[in-house]
Every structure is written in C-alpha cells, then in structure tokens.
Amino acid sequence: MIGGQLSNKILYNGSEAAIKGCLQAGATFFAGYPITPGTEIMEQWVKKTSENQKYRFIQAEDETSAGFNVIGAILAGKKAFTATAGPGNTLMQDPISMAEAMRLPFVAIIMQRGGPSTGTVIFSQQEVNLTCHGGNGEGHRIVYSTSTPQELYNYCLKAFDIAWKWRFPTFILADGYQAKQESQVVFKKYIPRINSKPILKYNHGNNNLRNCYNFETELALNLEKNIRDYNLMSKKVCEYELYKASDASEIIITHGITSLSVIEAIDILRTKFNKKIGLFRPITLAPFPIEVGNKVISNKTNIYIAESSNGQLASLVKSNLNIRSTIVELLKPAVPISAEDIINLVRK
C-alpha cells in the first residue's frame, strides 16, 4: 500500500464488523443489555436494522432476560443472538444452560473484560472458563476465540450455520480491544447454508418441550446422546492456526488477540535470535483441536503457554493434549501481553 493515493477504504470497528457478519449470516433477532465493551454491538444492530420490520430488537431489563428473549426467538424459528461481557456473561449463564440442555442454536458474542466482578471494562482473556463451561450440569458449547475485527466478521458469519446445523450454543469470544479497534475489514459475499425453522411446533411433533426430568436415568440418556453428537461434530468444526510451526523445535500456544503479539515475536526471534519457534493457536477453544495440537507439540523441546489470565487456557491445553516436553507458562491475568514479553520469555 503506497501512501498518497486516495482510496475508498472505510474503517470498521470490531462491533460493526461483527454485526455485518451476523446480518449476512441471516440473523434477524437481537436481544441485549448495555454493558461495556459489548454495548456497541447492540447499538450497531439498532443502527443497521431499525428501519426494517423484518428485524427484531429487544433491549431487555437485564442480561438474564435478554438471553431468555433470544431463546424465545429461536424456538419461534429466528436466527437470534446476543452480546455481552464480564458480569453480563455471568448473568447470561442461566439462559445458556437452558440452551445447552435443549440443544438450542444460541449464538452470543462475548467481549472479555477483566474480572472477577466489575473488574475492568476493556480487556482480559479471563472468560474462557465461563464461556466454555459456565452452566450448571454437563453442557456442551462451541467457542471461537478471535483476534481481530476481521475475524470477528469471519466467525460471526459462520456461527449461525454452525449453531443451526449442530445445535450447540455457539460463542464468538473476543475482547474490548477487538470490539473497539478500527481497521480496514474485508467483507465477502455469503449465502447462509442452513435455514432456520421453528423448533417448537404447533400441531404435531415437537409441541411439548421441557428441560427437566423425573429420573436420573432419563437425564443420563439425554446427556449421553449430547456427548456422542459433540464428539461426532468436533473434528469437523474445530479450527486452529499454525504459524512457522512446521520446522519449529519450540512451540508457543496462545489464543485470541495475544496471538498477534506472539506472531510479531516469532518473526523477531527467528530473524534476530535464530530461534526455531512457531505458534499453535486453537481458534476453537471448544471443541479443542486435539489431533493437530498433539501432532504439533510432539518432540518439541519447550512448550510455552501465554495468556492474559491465570491459567484458563493452560488448563484447557494440559487437559486436552499429551505434553511430554517442558511447559513454561506466561500468565498475566487481566493485562495484555506484548511481543517484548514473549521475546523475553523465550530468551530466558
């Protein structure tokens, strides 16, 4: 790109890019509640859809109700979603657990912020546990961890087809930096592959729905089916990114926006310090890319895990992969990790 030539490049922030993806994916219903840094998603939805009767919007009285509003719309057959963050994510777990129990295609965009409690309003990677496992009992979810406004667009575009095909609550896990960052985003043509249809029927079939059971064995049978379906789906849906990993002797594992700093660091470590080092980045935290992960980490001297949390990614990695090598963790709860941090970590 040479400076001086006028261009039509328009800047989008992550929230705008996300809404564009959701609209192209066929979403027609949004319910939410103001909470930084997820509020702009709601505002963008209103801005883009308020003139058109086909789209529905509810600003709920709180996040819990917003989640149940979304469930109502899904039962009625609409591609529906919400967006929240931090304490709102905590409140959202109540409706999400109903969506888990009843295998509803609930889609939510989570803009991570520091916690626990009110915490900070802009950034962390501390909502991994909550977003992957925040409900009671044994639920299953699909969670994409994005790193840029471009990826927010890409994965919002994909989330609804994924959710409606496989019927697991599907999340786009980002953070306030991505939500607010303005950059040039490339949009593409997209035709949704799955059409939504009413889940609650009227005259026949699925016209009596509940999420409670009389006996433990009934629940157990239902859960076993969900687990089977989840395992069947996992290999097809899991996504990852590898950067200069093929000839690497050391691997850094990270997710989300931290991967940008790691990529920057890897380039410097390779050219300036002759380190043969690469990145394994799970894009789906759930289902975790186990097969590729195990292949990449085998026979490596050191495995580094870097995250802006106190080990939420590290726990996922260690429980999913068979790591035989030395593990070195860079855990910086609530604070972003820079390329310099990674370089210092590896050089020590």
């Binding site: 103001p34 909470i35 930084t36 509020t39 702009e40 709601m42 505002e43 209103v46 801005k47 308020s50 003139e51 919007f57 600003q59 009285e61």
Partner: peptide, 24 residues
C-alpha cells in the same frame, strides 16, 4: 438514559426521545 455506557434507552426514556437504541 444509560449514561455510562454511552446513552442507550432506559425505562425512563420519554416519548420521541433520541437515544442510541432509539435512533428514530
């Protein structure tokens, strides 16, 4: 309206009042 988060509608928002979630 909701001030801190940037001006969304609240239960007290008046008829015809402009907020970021009632842009019309």
């Amino acid at each position: 309206l909701y001030g801190m988060t940037g001006g969304q509608m609240a239960p007290t928002t008046l008829c015809n009042e402009l907020t970021t979630t009632t842009p019309n």
